[in-house]
Design a protein around this nucleic acid. Structure first.
Length: 678
DNA sequence: AATATCCGTATTTTT
DNA sequence: TACGGATATT
């Protein structure tokens, strides 16, 4: 096992430590992936059967990467390890054992948007949308619900703490949640939160709980700082037979509190698993010292101080650049110029990444990259499966899978010409879907044998729909063929409903292509909701992937990744930290960690950019703009730890970046100030 | 009852 | 800017 020799002492201790609970505190770039992968390999070499190891990661990609590495050390059997996200693992276990908690094995999973739609439907039905005073929107309702579930707080407390403006509506909200849960059960549908809750319930089920816990000899958890209370409880239940659990995390990189993740899980780990051993990895192998210095300096100002300062043996390297740009256009130019310059120096585009706070922050840059013929792949932001036309098609597949799925029926029926909410409801009643009393018969059978009468305008579409559904259910039809048959019904409709059908048509081709990799429809649609393709690259065919391309990513999606050169754009106050998240000290600290995560992705070179001038939704001619200041997290450290420069015209010297208010804690009012126009 | 049009407003991050 | 909601039209 010579691969053990490639580990430093702390890493080796983690990899080879004996049975029992272990907490590994692993700072950014300290070889966490390597350590976890080696641990898996070690366990296998020590005789643990691979399928008795459970590796919980934040994304499927992370699991795949670790198991790939482990396979290099321990051989192909590493691929038998149970690896994946909490949600995907829950799904897998519930398909096997769900009956013990009242689930039929054919349940379908709905994503965030679906659950918002269901909330909205109920909201309308209860007449809350029409009330005189405004009532929380579907997104808010879903956020409240999810927060309540994942933090295990009472509705009242959640409203008080995070949604004070909704407190008056507590009765209505309660009514909606009540109906929401009932509907999901009736329809045999689970939302993301349900996956966790049912896993947890499974662990309490007599006998089955023991069986599930006993199925694994070792549990390993990555990104532990971004797990929530429910997940922590699941882990405790999973380890009731033995305490073999290793969790790895970094409290300085906790950036998912909006999903109810809490660093408390890390802090409380020793209490939940008594006699836990703690190992800290502090040597950074990723970044050159000046980048670490700047990153550490950003973290040092945190309200709550964390445990470690990273160090590296990587000598040399240049100070990170802080580039003040005249406006967003100049920012795009400056970033593109540097990217191309790096590439000339021999750093391929694939080893360079542009990071930003919010998905839309890269919009203008994408245009410029396209103009300059720089290929790129974007992670995070709007996903393929969120596009309306893709959802339509998936909804039809869902109906085939789970005919009780009312939301999917509703969505599909609304597509037909002449069918609105009222007609859709009537048709569903005719098919015996939803309502109270659940689905008595099989709506798919009813659709063929005793179809209800649609409005005249919808008759043709309805006929085509019926035959499409029939074609998908008679005999064994592979998923890709089902997609193809559904398209015959869907495409004519689609061309009527959507503006630019040509572009969208390609997405349907993609969907069919993805489907061709599956033999089971159930697995196909579940994967689409639990592990959706997260980048344009996941979808692009092989030819494009052979090429060199630049990475664009939200900071959240960049977690766990590293690149030779990293460019952070829109590092202005109001973007990082986001204006949406400056309410409390905790929120601001999380934004700070976000910047820290972004900075520590860089190995050799780091550039931070911010535009001085933001134009207000200029109608092209109008020149209304306001001035921004550099992120408050950088205001105090920029002079010392960054190499500063400007891009764009020089006329703005009178607004130098160091106006940014000492202490870096000025309010929003200070940030964007209209000076003049024209 | 469905669809077209207009207006105001919220506006992130993801399983 | 895009989306949701309300109002006007078919």
């Amino acid at each position: 096992m010579d691969w053990l020799n490639e580990l430093n002492p702390a890493q080796r201790e983690a990899v080879t430590c004996p049975d029992g609970p272990v907490l590994v505190i692993a700072g950014a770039g300290t070889g966490k992936t390597k350590t976890l992968a080696s641990r898996v390999a070690w366990l296998i070499e020590q005789g643990t059967p691979a399928d008795r190891i459970l590796l919980l990661t934040f994304t499927r990609r992370a699991a795949a990467e670790m198991l790939g590495r482990a396979a290099r050390f321990a051989g192909a059997q590493a691929n038998k390890v149970w690896g994946g996200t909490f949600h995907a693992t829950a799904n897998r276990l519930l398909r096997l054992y769900g009956r013990a908690v009242g689930l039929s094995a054919t349940f379908t999973v709905m994503d965030q948007a679906d659950s918002e739609d269901l909330m909205n439907l109920i909201r309308g039905e209860l007449g809350l949308a029409k009330a005189k005073k405004r009532f929380p929107r579907k997104g808010t309702l879903s956020a409240i619900y999810s927060r309540m579930v994942n933090s295990r707080m009472k509705l009242k407390a959640v409203l008080q703490a995070a949604f004070p403006w909704c407190e008056d509506d507590i009765d209505g909200i309660r009514a909606i949640f009540e109906a929401y849960v009932r509907r999901k059960r009736e329809q045999n549908v689970l939302d993301y939160d349900d996956l966790l809750l049912h896993w947890q319930a499974l662990m309490d089920a007599p006998e089955v709980g023991d069986k599930v816990a006993g199925r694994f000899d070792h549990v390993l958890v990555d990104e532990y700082q971004d797990t929530n209370v429910v997940q922590a409880e699941i882990l405790v239940a999973m380890r009731r037979r033995n305490g073999n659990i290793m969790v790895v995390g970094d409290d300085a990189q906790s950036i998912y509190s909006f999903r109810s993740a809490t660093v408390r899980n890390m802090l409380d780990f020793p209490r939940q698993f008594p006699k836990a051993r703690t190992i800290t990895l502090e040597e950074n192998y990723r970044s050159v010292q000046p980048i670490l210095d700047a990153s550490n300096a950003v973290m040092e100002q945190a309200g709550e101080r964390y445990t470690k300062n990273l160090f590296t043996r990587r000598q040399g390297g240049e100070k990170p650049a802080l580039v003040t740009c005249l406006d967003e256009t100049e920012q795009c130019n400056a970033v593109c110029d540097r990217i191309l310059a790096r590439r000339e120096e021999g750093v391929p585009l694939m080893r360079q990444a542009v990071l930003f706070r919010a998905g839309h922050h890269s919009a203008q840059l994408e245009v410029e990259l396209t103009r300059r013929n720089i290929p790129f792949v974007k992670y995070g932001g709007l996903k393929f499966v969120e596009a309306a036309h893709v959802k339509d098609l998936i909804a039809i597949l869902r109906i085939l899978e789970n005919p009780a799925d009312q939301m999917s029926w509703y969505r599909v029926l609304l597509l037909m010409p002449g069918v609105g909410p009222a007609a859709a409801r009537k048709l569903m009643a005719g098919l015996g879907i939803g309502g109270d009393g659940g689905g008595a018969g099989n709506p798919l059978r009813a659709l063929q044998d005793a179809p209800p009468k649609p409005p005249p305008a919808a008759e043709k579409a309805f006929q085509v729909f019926r035959s499409a559904m029939r074609n998908c259910t008679t005999g064994k039809v592979p998923p890709a063929a089902q997609v193809e048959r559904i398209r015959r019904f869907y495409e004519p409709i689609f061309e009527r409903v959507y503006e630019n059908p040509k572009v969208r048509l390609r997405d349907l081709d993609q969907l069919e292509l993805i489907a061709s990799n599956y033999r089971s429809r159930s697995k196909f649609i579940t994967d689409l909701t639990l592990d959706p393709p997260r980048s344009t690259g996941d979808l692009a065919g092989k030819p494009l992937l052979d090429d060199d391309y630049l990475i664009l990513s939200t900071i959240h999606s960049a977690k766990g990744c590293e690149w030779d050169a990293v460019y952070i754009i829109h590092a202005a106050d109001g973007m990082i930290p986001s204006d949406m998240a400056t309410g409390s000290a905790e929120e601001i600290d999380e934004e700070r960690r976000l910047l820290y995560v972004a900075m520590t992705r860089a190995k050799d070179s780091l550039g931070i950019f911010f535009p001085l001038r933001y134009y207000h939704r200029g109608r092209g001619l109008s020149d209304a703009h306001s001035y921004a200041q550099v992120s408050r997290f950088l205001a105090d450290v920029q002079a010392r730890l960054f190499a500063r420069s400007t891009a764009g015209a020089q006329q703005d010297e009178e607004h130098p970046a160091e106006d940014a208010g000492q202490g870096g804690s000025r309010t929003v009012d200070d940030k964007l100030r209209d000076l003049w126009s024209g």
